[in-house]
Design a protein around this nucleic acid. Sequence first.
DNA 1: GTATTAAATTCGCGACACGAACTATATGCG
DNA 2: CGCATATAGTTCGTGTCGCGAATTTAATAC
Lengths: 406, 406
Amino acid sequence: MKRIDFTNTQVASSQTARDINRGVVLNLIRRRQPISRADLARVSGLQRSTVSLITEQLIRERWVVHGPIGRLPRGRRPTFLRLNDRRAILVADLRPAQTTVGVADVNGNFLSQETMPTTRDPGVTAGALAAKIRHLMQVYSDRVFEGIGISIPGRFNDLSRRIVFAPNLGWPEFDIKGTIEDATGVRVEVENAANACVLAEVWFGHGEKVRDFVVVTVSEGIGTGVFANGQLIRGMNGMAGEFGHVSLDPNGPSCTCGGRGCWEVYASNRAALRYYHESIKSSDGLTFQDLLVLAESGDLLAVKALDRMVHALGRGMRMLVAGLAPEEVVVVGELTRQWRRFGPAIESEVAMGLPGGHPPHVRPAEGILARLRGTVALVLQKHFGPLAGPQEFEEKGFRRIRSLAG
Amino acid sequence: MKRIDFTNTQVASSQTARDINRGVVLNLIRRRQPISRADLARVSGLQRSTVSLITEQLIRERWVVHGPIGRLPRGRRPTFLRLNDRRAILVADLRPAQTTVGVADVNGNFLSQETMPTTRDPGVTAGALAAKIRHLMQVYSDRVFEGIGISIPGRFNDLSRRIVFAPNLGWPEFDIKGTIEDATGVRVEVENAANACVLAEVWFGHGEKVRDFVVVTVSEGIGTGVFANGQLIRGMNGMAGEFGHVSLDPNGPSCTCGGRGCWEVYASNRAALRYYHESIKSSDGLTFQDLLVLAESGDLLAVKALDRMVHALGRGMRMLVAGLAPEEVVVVGELTRQWRRFGPAIESEVAMGLPGGHPPHVRPAEGILARLRGTVALVLQKHFGPLAGPQEFEEKGFRRIRSLAG
DNA sequence: GTATTAAATTCGCGACACGAACTATATGCG
DNA sequence: CGCATATAGTTCGTGTCGCGAATTTAATAC
């Protein structure tokens, strides 16, 4: 008897070239729409004839539709192509306090967006979320829904299909994917919020031009998403990116994760509030937003608390920057609203004592929008080819092949 | 006038499939030699006819040669194929104290290996190295040399072609690539030692099966190499992997890099020696090897010093493990000689308070061998296709294509 | 010798990208 | 209006490649 072991070797067939080029053309249309076939050929380097065949295929697949006719000083007028925005994606961003639900088209434009409270009971929250989604599907029944994308402040394990690590949410392990899929009949994709922000940057931001950057989400906790070598780094079981729970001080305050002195204990919104509480009594019920307003209006203790937080934020980022050498650090969170105040402080803290080379550019991104748009990208990834991830190959032209072991 | 901007979009041509499959077949031969065409077809999933054509091409290119004829209970006998081991690679491992030079065949087997001292003067060392290499080229003049691979305890900047960050070597910026190339006439590839160990693991170890692991080299300093999503992470300017210079304590002892309290200040061989020096006076001239021997023979202070070092090592690894979620942590360095003593201590320290999921397997690797073999892989990468890195695509079937900007 | 088995090659086919030729459609000028 | 010119988009012939069936080669068993 022979032992068979399925290795991951991937061979190319005749269709592989088409699959690759289809992805290139589809993403060029997404990026540069409206665009003519002739321009696609110029931009991609493919022959006009090849572009025609591929666009024909994309139109058959209903990903692309004809747009308006262009005007040129001379010659035949080009027919522009654009994405079919009748195809929509349902998106949700789960946060400890509230959940945002919405509908977006394939371009990441939102048709609708609303919020609902997040409760401590996963089942109740998921039920309410599913109801909202079903309602949205009725309201937008003229659209075709590609899937549901959900970003969470934690980790989703693909094997067990459960949320397995979400200390700031306070949920036990829960099968959110199955629950929502059963209630709606639509396929659900779940991803960590910081990773979703990475996808949003790649899909709707600077694209794949920047091949190494990290996203740091600062809210109740601290999340990090790593984009390296032009790919989102997921790690074993999708657990990569928990730099927020790296211990800076083994004897520091305890963290929601069970550890002590984690980065997020010093640099999250909660940390700033704690610093403020320590300096002044009678400050119950204060939110991070309030703290920002206080600092803006000149409250010295509030400024001091935020400065401590920002200092810790920069210190932790230096860890990421030293280890991963990103070109950019993208910051997501409420504190970006006063970027003028915090931005330079973070940037100089990051650059301090950096081993060799140039410090990265530190810049803000819009939070909710990034998370939601990231989940749009998450759902579309399956159809748009290997942009931002290698896992696509297996499902398309490539095949897993056998190998004889032993 | 049109502004033209070369984007990195890569389209596939007819030859793309062949390039991919050539790489698959060549690497299967490398891995499983001697192997027949029939087995290659079975293992790869390609048709026997396709395998025949590709192997014919590889034999023409002189990468593959016919081996012995096999024996089977029935039927025509298979002709085995194997790599052409007349093609050799010159390798060097530069370390602060000494440099190892050698010759290896394409299988990573060493034909020769010798050491020479490393001096504080880059020019002198490079000159001596070049002389040794020229001598080896004469001794093995029956071989064809593919290139020279050099691993360094620092960073090589591809643009300036210089060693730009090597605090433990104590060299100023130096163009080692140009110096050796001019003196030998052979192409030189330079890579950080930890990254070289990563390549060695992927090429001569478990292969691409483990898609996420990190290498931690422990010697004068601490180096880290990150393998994620099945790729070596290089970062901007190839600077990724300097986790050794992440500050654990901003007020800690100063480091060779100019910072304070870096991980390597607490967890390197030098750190262990410092701990020992602190506990006992009159211990000048002691090497790390001596310390290991002392500990083995029951010197309690030596044991204590090494325990402190191992504790710090584990603490830093927890940072890597939390952030990158590797399946494995591979340790390279002298301390692996007493792995029975240190291994379990490191592993339990790493697993302590890890956010969610399973801790990685921590295991040792042979140091000098890994570094040297890694440089073999470094040189061969160019010819063996996109194994362990995406940068290959540009040079083979893929092309950069134009895009009109503005 | 003949049947059987397996390796390796040959050959016809379809998919694909390429590139030249061709068609379609616009502007401008005599 | 008619013709030159320019640009978009399509058609068609060619070469490469992988596929898979048929064929050839070479060994063993009876």
